[in-house]
């Protein structure tokens, strides 16, 4: 299972990406899916095993997320269920 972190702006996304990389937390970047809004944005995918660690890191460093979603399915049939 994979989770998607979305952010209020690109700066927060870049800061979070760096933070995860520094903490050796596996993270992958993708564009904001259309169904999650029409804002141009970058979001980060994190495996379920690292979800809590990622969540704590973001909270501890004052990074503002727009939402965290559980990614269900794959390819064009992917849906995003709000987790936080």
């Amino acid at each position: 299972m994979t989770y998607l972190f979305t952010f209020i702006n690109t700066h927060n996304a870049i800061t979070a990406s760096h933070l995860f990389e520094t903490e050796k937390l596996p993270v992958r970047v993708m564009p904001l899916p259309g169904q999650l809004g029409d804002a141009c944005g970058i979001c980060l995918r994190v495996d379920a095993d690292y979800l809590q660690q990622a969540f704590d890191l973001i909270k501890d460093h004052g990074i503002t997320t727009a939402g965290i979603y559980k990614i269900i399915g794959s390819g064009a049939k992917q849906v995003y269920e709000k987790w936080h």
Partner: peptide, 19 residues
């Protein structure tokens, strides 16, 4: 460059989603 790097990752991921 930081933005450029993250945009490129996003770009390549998007290519995986093409039909």
């Amino acid at each position: 460059d930081e933005l450029g790097s993250i945009l490129l990752k996003s770009y390549i991921y998007s290519l995986t989603q093409l039909d």
